[in-house]
Design a protein around this nucleic acid. Structure first.
Lengths: 231, 231
DNA sequence: AGAGCTTAGTGTGCACATAACACTAAGCAC
DNA sequence: GTGCTTAGTGTTATGTGCACACTAAGCTCT
């Protein structure tokens, strides 16, 4: 079967930049390519968009197919569309890139279709990447660093219940600088959408911390009222 | 001549949302469609991307072809890629939308290829639009309103030399609210990249105002030093 | 020439937000 | 119960945002 058009068309793909956070670092999910071109090279999960398929749906599908990861309550947003001729050695391929923030512990990752392997890599120590994926990752990193300061998207990187220390560690990691503990806690609690669950950590070899959660409904309410956060 | 592929491909287009400002309002450049579908309906200028053509180049080309407008020192940025199946009645068409800010007086507009007419419309009083272009325009408006507050992109809407009153009018129009004259002037001049040219207006039936210009080199310098604006 | 019109241009004070800073509290391990 | 580790807490100084009203300068019209 084949498809014929009156004019030549660039191919259209989606790629996903999935960020995760563990106790140490910011990580990104990559797959090792099983097919040509760039066989054996690490790359962002992604692939061709089907006709009649929404771009976001395509991004989720390719991600699930190649890494086994299904985005549920993760944060997912379109990043940018990369269309420079020559970015794919085969032909002109335009890629609509998306980025996602997930809690690493919630998601089992396994290599699948078209991928020889799939695993998390430290953003600070990436392998060589296929295509222009290093560039895409750079753009994604900038967007993440920029956006986390005025939108509460970072919470998607944490478990549902988290301590203020974890939240602070998250911001320090993303912003790349330390912040003052007292000021940070004051500011976060003053925002009004980081709420105390009444629970505390268990099984930790030290004083247990209170557990908080991100109250999304409250955030949306405040947003409607014209409130603005700035970290 | 025709082109055959192993798998079906969505078509790929670019659309341009060009904003301009005159003494009264924020305007947007639209074309009246000369061909089907939506013949006779107003739409964003745009069209199919050629194979081997960069997306930004395609956006500029389509804009020039349909409206005669050539973006030189205008601000141009990718907006979002719209790919919902059904957004074009013919088939699955994915559109990479761009938005631009230009100084209306610098640009002559005339209908050309594929367009029966081309003209500026007040953003507040738009006609019915073809495809999902009303939605694209809405997204563009949000982006503009958001971005103008922390990036000095608004200057692209003004002539090279402008008065602080013009600049204030610009911000008031974009933000949709009045601002205090004294505070506005203090803040703008404190930024350091709005510089006095030493000249003043001529031929105005009132006290002439000083003319300022946007010093882009200075802005880039400050940006590198980690400075941040916020209006 | 002078009166009137129109927009340009200017400073202060108060309220609030940010940033710097160090010690006690609580639970666990040994 | 001692020691270790991280949790949790307030005050002060400084800077920024915001409200607010009058004089200055050039032109027009008579």
């Amino acid at each position: 079967m084949s498809f014929t058009y009156r004019y030549a068309r660039p191919a259209l793909t989606v790629d996903a930049v999935v960020f995760g956070l563990d106790d140490e670092d910011l990580k990104v999910l990559l797959v090792e390519r099983a097919g040509e071109p760039f066989r054996g090279t690490w790359a962002l999960p992604g692939g061709f968009v089907n006709v009649g398929e929404d771009l976001e749906v395509a991004a989720r599908r390719e991600l699930a197919e190649e890494t086994g990861l299904r985005l549920a309550d993760a944060y997912l947003e379109q990043l940018y569309t990369f269309g420079a001729p020559g970015r794919d050695p085969r032909e002109h391929v335009v890629s609509c890139a998306w980025y996602a923030l997930v809690n690493i512990r919630d998601h089992e990752v396994r290599a699948a279709t078209d991928a020889a392997d799939a695993r998390w890599w430290r953003v600070q120590a990436l392998p060589d990447l296929a295509f222009d994926h290093a560039h895409i990752l750079e753009v994604a990193g900038e967007r993440l660093r920029g956006k986390v300061r005025y939108r509460p998207i970072g919470f998607a990187l944490l478990p549902e219940r988290f301590t203020l220390s974890q939240l602070q560690h998250l911001y320090e990691t993303l912003l790349g600088r330390g912040v003052d503990k007292r000021n940070f806690r004051k500011k976060m609690l003053a925002l009004g959408f980081v709420v105390d669950t009444g629970e505390t950590e268990t099984d930790v070899p030290r004083r247990p911390a209170r557990l908080y959660r991100f109250d999304e409904a409250r955030y949306r309410q405040l947003e409607r009222e014209g409130f603005e956060m700035w970290v």
